[in-house]
Structure formats: structure tokens, C-alpha cells
Design a protein around this nucleic acid. Structure first.
Length: 259
DNA sequence: CGGTTTTGACCCGCGC
DNA sequence: GCGCGGGTCAAAACCG
């Protein structure tokens, strides 16, 4: 008699779990749909930007130069403003706000040549030059975001005259190229997740910056799952994401999408 | 000992 | 012309 009741209890437990899994699957399906929706929006956005860049290139007296839109985070005026300019690019890196070092790990070796406190930001700005190849013209400025101290803003100028391994060449790796990795989404109100790039593959493996591209890839692969978990966790904690999720669900119910 | 960091001084462009 | 502010220089200190 005991065996029979325990079997029944097990069956109920399994059914409960099955139900829970179904609900979880449903939730994940909705999230996937939202992600797909956002991806489509972003792709449309990128296409729009490309079109604008082409327009600027054809109108500008300096149309020979490569121009693109520079995304600038300006917490005082607007969440994001876009200024057409020649080549400097910005990345945002989430770090520990207690960490005083202005180090952005991006696969290159940098030599610091100056530090200044600027008027609009109490945090000092650090100036770096690329030290991987003599004569490499690339410079970068790193400064903490005035509003969000845990956020580092790195501004790059110029293009590397060598590859990330330090060997000379003209691969023209640039921080704004596709090697960027979204490893830690920024969920501040001023940012849309995915628009803030984070190159800081924060790992205690080695404090030195690794100039090896393969290191970056290996590291990315090893941490891929945990990063995805981190990403999902941060999304579910973000109230704005919850609102966006609700809106997206409402939208998908009113206008069914064909994927 | 060589490379890097720190930091005060200096330079230069810009607005008034 | 002057003052301000951002960017760079360069000597000293630091570090592995």
C-alpha cells in the first residue's frame, strides 16, 4: 500500500515539474520573441544609420574620408546623441565603482602618458597611447561616467597600424569593429542593452592585458554560458525590461509577427 | 635595467 | 590680449 501511494506522489511531483517546465518554456518563448523583435528593430536602426552615413559622405566636403556616426553618451542632455565625426569611437565598460584604476582591457597594450581632472567630471581622465608597435598612432582616453561611477567610458582615436598580436600589418583593427563583445549588458536607464559595448572580459586569470586575439576568443567561449546567464539575470532584474516585455507581448498579441 | 606610471608644468586652441 | 580648459611632455618614481 505504501509503495502504491509513493508512486502516486512521485507521479504528481513529476506532473508538477512538467507543468512548471511548460510554463518556463512558455516564458522563454515569449522572451525569445521579444529578443527577435528587438533584433529586427536594431537591424532596421543600423540600416537607417548606414543610409545616413552614406548621405553625409556624399554631402561632406571631406567625402573622401571615412565618416560614421559617433554615439556619445551624454547623461546631462540626452540619453544618447549622435554626432557625425571622423573616426573616434567610444565604448562603455562596466567595472567595480570602487576600482580606482582606469583600465579597459581590449586586447592591446597601452602606455599611460597623462591624467587630467576635467571640468565636467570629478573623476580624472587618463590618456593612453598604444605601446604594442612603435609609431602606432592610436590613442585612447578613459574616464568614469560622472553619473554612473561603475561605468568607464573609453574613447579611441585613430587606427592601429598593426594587428592585436603586435605584428606589423594593416589589418586595421579598430575598437569599433565587429570584434567587440557584449559581455556585460548595461541596464542603466540611459542605455539600451546591447548598445553599450563592454570589452572588459573581467577575469582574474591574468591582470596583464592579453594581446592575443585567440585568447579573447577562447575566453569568450569559456565564459559564453555564464555570460548568457548573467545577461538573462540582469534582464529579468531590470524593471524597464519588464515593462518592455509587457509592451512587446501586448504588441505581439495585437499584431502577430511572421518570423 | 628597461618599461611603465605619476604628476606638475607647459602648450595651444577657443571664447570673451 | 587674457583666461580657461583640454591635451601633451618629461623628469622622477616605481616595478618586475
Amino acid at each position: 500500500m505504501d509503495g502504491h501511494s509513493s508512486c502516486k506522489a512521485k507521479a504528481e511531483a513529476l506532473q508538477d515539474e512538467l507543468e512548471r517546465t511548460r510554463k518556463e518554456n512558455e516564458t522563454l518563448r515569449v522572451m525569445l520573441e521579444v529578443m527577435s523583435s528587438k533584433l529586427s528593430d536594431l537591424q532596421a536602426h543600423v540600416q537607417e544609420k548606414k543610409f545616413k552615413v552614406q548621405e553625409i559622405g556624399s554631402c561632406s566636403p571631406l567625402s573622401g574620408a571615412s565618416y560614421y556616426y559617433h554615439e556619445v553618451y551624454d547623461p546631462i542632455k540626452k540619453p544618447r546623441i549622435e554626432i557625425p565625426m571622423a573616426k573616434p569611437s567610444q565604448i562603455f565598460v562596466r567595472t567595480d565603482s570602487e576600482d580606482k584604476s582606469l583600465i579597459v582591457k581590449d586586447g592591446y597594450q597601452w602606455r599611460k602618458y597623462g591624467q587630467k581632472v576635467t571640468k565636467d567630471n570629478p573623476s580624472p581622465r587618463a590618456y593612453y597611447r598604444c605601446s604594442m608597435a612603435p609609431g602606432c598612432p592610436v590613442k585612447k582616453k578613459v574616464q568614469r561616467c560622472a553619473e554612473d561611477k561603475s561605468l568607464l567610458v573609453a574613447t579611441y582615436e585613430g587606427e592601429h597600424s598593426h594587428d592585436p598580436n603586435g605584428s606589423p600589418g594593416h589589418t586595421m583593427y579598430s575598437p569599433d569593429s565587429s570584434r567587440s563583445c557584449i559581455s556585460c549588458p548595461v541596464t542603466s536607464n540611459h542605455f539600451q542593452p546591447g548598445l553599450a559595448l563592454d570589452l572588459n572580459l573581467s577575469s582574474p586569470i591574468d591582470d596583464k592585458e592579453k594581446p592575443s586575439q585567440s585568447f579573447m576568443e577562447d575566453h569568450t567561449n569559456k565564459n559564453c554560458n555564464s555570460k548568457v546567464e548573467e545577461y538573462v539575470a540582469s534582464l529579468t532584474k531590470d524593471p524597464s525590461f519588464t515593462v518592455a516585455l509587457a509592451n512587446a507581448v501586448a504588441r505581439s498579441l495585437s499584431t502577430p509577427r511572421v518570423l
